[in-house]
Design a protein around this nucleic acid. Structure first.
Lengths: 366, 366
DNA sequence: AGGATTCCTGAAACCGGTTGCAAGAAGACC
DNA sequence: GGTCTTCTTGCAACCGGTTTCAGGAATCCT
């Protein structure tokens, strides 16, 4: 009799004291009665632990039971509850990703790389945008930590180094776009300086001497590095740096338009224009077009990033390729290694010049 | 004595039988000893339930305890464990989002709208890409359900209606890009047909009679609707539909290039070109340029989507604006309403023509 | 003042997987 | 056949919040 009672209790037919409604919504969502581990166990006539072990392959189980359990799993279309598993394991198989904007060819490509790599390993990315505000980024970080992500990738973020190091005490972090060393943290940086030098050297090689530069925001690390590269390449060619040939945009098309108009309105003369990124170059081309100048006839234009659509611009844009997708992929690899307790040994993807049709021999205005 | 023992056990100072290592990795990740509810409770000298109630504002708590608890929360920088909460509540405050590609101006904009709306309500989006494969999308759906997302947004997906309806039995679903009714499912569709008609009517208004069309994939619902709109507008203008003026691309720039070259190589003559989306139009412009044709001098080109960068093309592209960000925002609203058990009553954002410089009066070849 | 409410708070039972421990079964060996 | 291993398997105790239930205090009523 007692045994029967126990079996009944274990059977789960018994009513729980708690309200059985899964969610207490007003008119209430649909039932959503997904199968649980114990239901599968009962169906297969084994204990919950056995089912768990079969699913995870933790230890050997006799093939008879195995088949029965597998049949039950299929029958119920059972999928383990991720929250429960996360709670028990202390891992969520989720990686937080902070980007500045999801809609942006630049970030989009990086996120694709991250997602592809993570998914392959059973992880999923949780994305949030920082919207170019440090406070927003910080909110993302706290949200991620609260959600118990296993690691965080900060893709070209603005958080201060100190803040990042501090967060790295709580969770593994990979950050791109800066060089930073700290326990639990790994950084992956494209060689922006070299990329900028490649761009300017190319312009020099085809005969340009008056090369203007449109920067992104002035204090952004990437911007600083690219500006440095620009100056260094000029210096190597023994050309004096002229501050009047520099304007500041905003990393977007609109800033490129504005900065280009500024340059054209100033007395400064130039035959080539190096833009801090492709979107800025798009704006620059439009501004030049509006002023009746042709690219590359009157002014050669070169960008940085080599966004997918740059190959389809009119004219196709010469640019410095930094494989952002690849950078995303490596960031993902790095975070997984970091989580596994290993020290990542990964180089950032290389930069290379992609010559298309927006740059040409020094034009008539030279 | 017994009481003491109990207090000790509740105190948590006692060693657990289980391994205390949070994660059994090889050299082991960092400790990650985040505070728990009970630690906070002990610090404040109250029970765990009281802390939980204060955090959630479930019921009133005397202000003395409240202050003590709040101080303890700050002291430990306590953030409730999302897995545990998800397990207890049966909700994860996470919405799965299936898109075809994260890197794509089109999807990017939609995802931004979704994220902005969800975040505001305390939800976070879990993104996965379907990569234009139905099997991939299905994998996403299963993954999401396994992770216990509270709802899923399928952004312009390929899953069959039947599959979607079936998934909708397990979880709330919002799908864009098709018209579909089912319990637990809500669909939001841009009026593609009308958009296409607006585009073609504009071309007709400025005098074009030979209007070619480049489609996306032939069987995609959006493509079908836009094609229908194209034919309807021609019919309204009493112009015979000519299948030789239709080519098929792939929604991307490359397909636009190929299809345009096909059209040019065929004997068919046309003075205007309506492309199924902006990316296709970008490719078309490049192909025309390669063939020495000017836009809009020789051929007028019009796109669909009005991607942000279309305003910065050379020439700036005339397009049909469908506010994809807005569509994302409304999808997010809809899924939250669905989850709350309410029936969403939302219209898709309107389509409108944005006239720029890639379309002009019928050219010389007319 | 005494009894009936109402309010606050803690103990304990969940949510659904995972896993240490030990008992029982099966196989190995003398 | 008996003893020692080695496997397989179930029980129960976790993971960390949430919530029901009930006890005790405070408040209200006549």
């Amino acid at each position: 009799m007692r045994i029967l009672a126990v079996a009944q209790a274990a059977g789960g037919e018994m009513k729980s004291k708690r309200s059985p409604a899964p969610t207490p919504g007003k008119s209430g969502p649909r039932p959503r009665q997904s199968a649980t581990l114990r239901m599968v166990a009962r169906e297969a006539g084994v204990s919950a632990s056995t089912v768990s072990r079969i699913i995870n392959g933790t230890v050997n189980v006799s093939s008879g039971l195995k088949h029965a359990v597998e049949a039950a799993i299929v029958k119920f279309d059972f999928r383990p509850n991720a929250s429960a598993r996360g709670l028990a394991l202390g891992r969520t198989l989720t990686i937080g990703v902070v980007a500045q904007a999801i809609d942006s060819p630049f970030y989009g490509e990086g996120l694709r790389g991250i997602e592809a790599c993570l998914r392959q390993r059973g992880y999923a990315p949780l994305f949030m945008s920082g919207n170019w505000h440090e406070e927003d980024e910080e909110r993302c970080m706290r949200e991620f930590i609260g959600r118990g992500v296993d690691g965080i990738i900060v893709f070209a973020g603005r958080l201060s180094d100190a803040k990042l190091k501090s967060y790295a005490k709580e969770v593994s972090i990979v950050v791109t776009g800066r060089r930073l060393r700290a326990p639990g943290l790994f950084s992956l940086q494209i060689d922006d300086r070299l990329g900028a030098m490649l761009a300017v050297r190319h312009l020099l090689n085809v005969g340009h001497r008056k090369i203007a530069f449109i920067n992104g925001s002035e204090n952004h690390p990437d911007a600083i590095e690219r500006f440095e590269g620009y100056k260094k390449a000029l210096q190597d060619a023994e050309i004096d740096f002229d501050p009047k040939l520099v304007a500041v945009g905003d990393w977007h098309e609109e800033g490129g338009v504005r900065a280009t108009l500024e340059l054209l309105d100033s007395k400064a003369r130039f035959t080539a224009l190096f833009c801090v990124n492709d979107q800025t170059a798009y704006g620059a081309c439009l501004a030049l077009y509006r002023k009746g100048l042709s690219v590359p006839g009157d002014v050669s234009v070169i960008g940085f990033d080599d966004l997918p659509s740059s190959a389809y611009r009119l004219p196709p844009l010469t640019s410095v390729r930094q494989s952002i997708g690849e950078l995303g992929d490596r960031s993902a690899q790095a975070i997984l290694q970091l989580i596994a307790g290993r020290r990542p040994r990964l180089d950032p993807p290389p930069v290379e010049l992609v010559i298309r049709e927006s740059t040409d021999r020094s034009g008539r205005k030279g």
